[in-house]
């Protein structure tokens, strides 16, 4: 699997560290316990298109959002996490 880092170009996925689902957003500090439980622990875990965070550890140290199909590992898009919010 190759990830096209928008800064460094196509690189083997072993240069990157996977950090999981990019969809959950941290709730406000005064949110309910249930909202935090959902954010920290519960996942949609889709079989199909998945938005996930990768860190280019052996490259430019950018945080990236990768859209990938979890059934085929085919990558649809890669963007910088910052500014994508």
């Amino acid at each position: 699997m190759r990830i096209h880092c928008p800064h460094c170009g196509p690189r083997g996925h072993d240069e990157f560290v996977h950090h999981g689902d990019a969809v959950p957003q941290r709730p406000q500090t005064d949110a309910t316990d249930a909202a935090f439980h959902d954010y920290v622990y519960l996942r949609d875990n889709p079989a199909g298109l998945y938005r996930e965070l990768w860190f280019h550890a052996a490259g430019c140290h950018s945080w990236l959002i990768v859209e990938r199909d979890t059934r085929t590992h085919e990558i649809r898009s890669v963007t910088f996490a910052r500014g994508d919010a």
Binding site: D21, Y41, R43, N45
Partner: peptide, 18 residues
Amino acid sequence: GHSSRVAALAGLKLPIES
């Protein structure tokens, strides 16, 4: 490995990734 998908059919969201 398919627990999340099957549980989702019953409206459940699990603390699990495949």
